[in-house]
Design a protein around this nucleic acid. Structure first.
Length: 437
DNA sequence: CCCGGTGTAGCTGCTTTGAT
DNA sequence: ATCAAAGCAGCTACACCGGG
């Protein structure tokens, strides 16, 4: 290493260099040197040499900048370069996203020889693999250099749908979270990539939905039933059943013939098939009874003997897959109605015809508003619900197109008349109540 | 190559808990 | 006593896959 020269020596060298009228370099030691140009400009430079680069950086000109000042400046630059280099070295020691993610992914691969995970399959693994494929552009990036901006630029180059990209970001986050736990990176900069309000987040965020879609009861015919007239028999029975009983689709899909008591006019649903593990009795109206009876006869005629009222296509021993009945509804109604939304429809209608809050809530199998009431009030309003259900089912019946009405034995005319007058009575009571206030 | 079946993620809305 | 946040269970959407 060149020894550090003194101020006196430096001045002397500058003078000789200037007199030469020729480009000369004066080495001042410690990576600092001064280049004297042919035109007499004396410029200080510091040489910065690390593993990745070898360059000189301009510090200033003599005599504006003294030798001492230049040396101080040079030292600052050198230490900064050294730090930078160390960070770079550290960075490059981190594994790349490609290598880490493939290791991470292999964890989800189900080992067929292990009897521990016999209930699993490779769906999850395959889905994650698909997401990582979308992020292939990140494979050569070290883990600690991944940030939302880079992810965004990689994603914008692919032609996948926004939904697929969003899922890819979720997968990326899961992977990076694992990397944090493994101690490879300190934090995941993409953690809030989908949650924050930034421009990048907005590009991938899912538009918020306003609850489950539903329509007013009066629109059920046009917006729901009429759009499903071409569905198979079993689906039509399911839709009518769900609309009339206002059960959750999960409970309805599990319905077994043994739960239905035609004699006592009740459907008894065991606790394990209801939300919150509460057993639930549904009053069986004449409409629903007829609907189910005719369906049962049809099943026997077609020799589809199943413990389930709504059985799966794949096996008579399995309940119907919800997606089977769900998809036609979402597709045919242009997402204006969902099966769960029918409960809202029923609840709104009941409020409109003046059914007391308590009875309506029980009809939908909701817990009483106050837990104190729930503890002391064991009465389940079953008797009252019989009437409510009869009126609601009569109303649904009036909403059914012919293709659905055919599923039910034509009720006796005087029964229909009674339902009609009962409903009108109830409506007039509400009208009176309204007019007095 | 399409159609229907499948598991999972994320979301919704009810229920419970906790704070005032 | 009241209200809002957190927790939880169920619902829908999504992407994939295998069989026709």
């Amino acid at each position: 290493m060149k020894k550090i020269i003194t101020h006196k020596e430096f001045i002397k060298q500058i003078e000789t260099a200037l007199s030469k009228n020729k480009k000369t370099s004066i080495n001042c030691g410690g990576n600092l040197f001064n280049e004297v140009s042919s035109k007499g400009l004396c410029t200080f430079y510091v040489r910065i040499r690390t593993s990745s680069l070898d360059t000189k950086k301009l510090l200033g000109r003599f005599p504006d900048l003294s030798l001492k000042e230049a040396r101080d400046k040079a030292n600052i630059e050198l230490t900064r370069a050294k730090d930078e280099n160390e960070r770079q070295l550290q960075k490059s020691s981190k594994p790349t996203f490609g290598s880490y993610s493939s290791m991470w992914l292999s964890f989800f691969k189900v080992d067929p020889n292990s009897n521990d995970n016999s209930h699993k399959n490779n769906k999850r693994h395959d889905n994650l693999r698909a997401s990582l494929k979308i992020l292939k552009g990140l494979d050569s990036t070290p883990l600690d250099l991944i940030n939302p901006k880079i992810v965004d630029s990689v994603l914008s180059k692919t032609d996948k749908t926004t939904g697929a990209k969003r899922i890819a970001i979720k997968a990326l986050n899961q992977c990076l979270r694992s990397a944090v736990v493994d101690g490879i990176i300190d934090k995941n900069p993409c953690e809030n990539m989908l949650n924050s309000q930034g421009l990048i987040a907005q590009r991938y965020r899912k538009p918020k939905l306003k609850g489950y879609a539903w329509v007013e009861a009066e629109l059920l015919k046009d917006k729901f039933f009429s759009k499903l007239t071409n569905e198979p028999y079993i689906h039509k029975v399911f839709y009518t059943f769900v609309a009339m009983t206002s059960l959750r689709v999960g409970s309805a899909s599990e319905l077994r013939w043994t739960w239905i008591d035609f004699d006592n006019k009740v459907i008894h649903i065991p606790a394990e098939y209801m939300k919150m593990n509460r057993e639930f009795d549904v009053p069986l109206s004449d409409f629903v009874a007829s609907l189910l009876k005719r369906w049962e006869i049809q099943c026997i005629r077609e020799e589809n003997i199943s413990p389930f009222v709504f059985y799966a296509k794949s096996s008579l021993q399995k309940p119907i897959r919800l997606i089977q009945v769900q998809d036609p509804v979402t597709n045919n109604t242009q997402k204006e109605v969902t099966l769960h939304g029918l409960r809202k429809t029923a609840r709104t209608w009941m409020a409109k015809i003046g059914v007391p809050e308590m009875i309506a809530e029980y009809a939908l199998s909701h817990e009483a508003k106050s837990s104190l009431v729930a503890v002391y009030n064991k009465y389940d309003y079953f008797k009252e619900r019989i009437t409510v259900m009869r009126l609601w089912n009569y109303f649904i019946y009036t909403q059914l197109p012919d293709e659905f009405k055919n599923l039910i034995d034509p009720p006796a005319q005087d029964f229909l008349n009674k339902c009609k007058s009962d409903l009108e009575d109830q409506l007039s009571k509400v009208a009176l109540f309204k007019s007095e206030h």
